[in-house]
């Protein structure tokens, strides 16, 4: 039996909005520590790893481990029906075949209830191996989203070059090329506006902007984003 109540639906709305572009059908693995999602996109190029800790819900109850097979396009449509400030309760009974979602407006004058059919998703057991990255860049997430959007006008591929005191995003295509250089700015007043480049050794790697733009949709969830890069391993965002 799972019953979890989120004080404001906006958090789950943003999460689903960011993930739905990448993940078709996947399991929400629920246990007493929270709700986890580990899933790849259909072409197995990107992995989404998400953990919604039990502490973020109030109350949170999960009697035994349960895997909820969900079609994320359907869940995204249902989440569109929730107001940002509604409180949201998700429920799934023993051997449930539906996930129930309830949105309650702040003054409880409107209660919406949706059931979405659960499906059997045979999931590969996935995880991100512990990696000691050559370069780790921390920067404002909105700025990263802006860079990915801006450089998409020039190319489908962006080269990220991390050197001692700067990170450079370069895109070159048939029509021309563009580059954006971001420099560290320690000691800023707002933590989220900080830019730091931690370097074990310089790296210069190319990535698909299609996927980076999908990942950047999660920018509204956190003010700061960390990019971790090393040769021959996937970029971690």
């Amino acid at each position: 039996m799972l019953e979890a109540r989120l004080p404001s639906a906006v958090t789950l709305k943003k999460i689903i909005d960011a993930v739905k572009e990448l993940v078709q059908d996947a399991n929400f693995d629920c246990n007493d520590s929270g709700i986890a999602l580990q899933a790849m996109d259909s072409s197995h190029v990107a992995l989404v790893a998400l953990l919604m800790r039990a502490e973020g819900f109030d109350p949170y109850r999960c009697d035994r481990n349960i895997a909820l097979g969900i079609n994320f396009a359907t869940l995204a449509k249902v989440m569109k029906c929730a107001g940002n400030d509604d409180n949201l309760t998700i429920k799934a009974g023993e051997d449930a075949d539906v996930l129930s979602l309830m949105f309650e407006s702040t003054n409880s004058d409107r209660i919406s209830e949706f059931d979405i059919k659960l499906m059997d998703v045979d999931a590969d057991h996935l995880g991100i191996p512990e990696t000691d990255y050559s370069a780790t860049i921390k920067m404002p997430s909105a700025e990263f989203q802006r860079i990915c959007r801006d450089l998409s006008v020039m190319s489908e591929t962006v080269t990220i070059e991390a050197v001692k005191d700067a990170v450079k995003f370069i895109a070159s295509g048939d029509t021309g090329s563009g580059s954006i250089t971001v420099k560290p700015n320690q000691a800023v007043d707002k933590k989220d506006m900080e830019v730091t480049v931690t370097l074990q050794e310089p790296v210069k790697l190319a990535f698909s902007l299609k996927y980076l733009n999908h990942f950047a949709k999660a920018s509204t969830l956190a003010g700061s984003v960390t990019l971790s890069l090393s040769d021959d391993v996937p970029l971690m965002i």
């Binding site: 197995h44 190029v45 992995l47 590969d124 057991h125 996935l126 995880g127 991100i128 391993v233």
Partner: peptide, 14 residues
């Protein structure tokens, strides 16, 4: 650029 290689084996838990 071009087609991306599958990362399933990289992320698959042994």
């Amino acid at each position: 650029g071009g087609e991306q290689k599958s990362l399933l084996s990289f992320f698959a838990r042994k």
